[in-house]
Amino acid sequence: MLNRIIVEKPIHNRIVVAKPKIGVAGKTGTWRTEKPLVDNSKCKKCYQCEIFCPVNVIRVDPNTGATVDYDYCKGCGICAELCPFNAIRMEPE
């Protein structure tokens, strides 16, 4: 019986595979109670904020500085806490 199932239905047809997607938990920016605001005149492009952002929503540009994707930023404050140049501050939503 088991043999028949395996012969008739190749195994890969029965494996459930999830697809990568941005926002599996929706627009997580709505979770935020505080919002990180970047002052790029203070930014020294050290990448600390980008490296540690758990949501992977900060991008540091070597010319213009840091930008945040507010659709998904959860407002944890890690970036503001870590920035050595105080270029990021948290503001209540």
């Binding site: 990568p20 997607k21 941005i22 926002g23 599996v24 938990a25 929706g26 627009k27 997580t28 979770w31 758990p54 949501v55 992977n56 929503v57 994707d69 659709d71 998904y72 959860k74 407002g75 944890c76 404050g77 890690i78």
Partner: peptide, 11 residues
């Protein structure tokens, strides 16, 4: 790693 996962803030 894609944005918008189900982790708690600061996870």
């Amino acid at each position: 790693v894609l944005p918008g996962d189900a982790a708690c803030p600061g996870c």
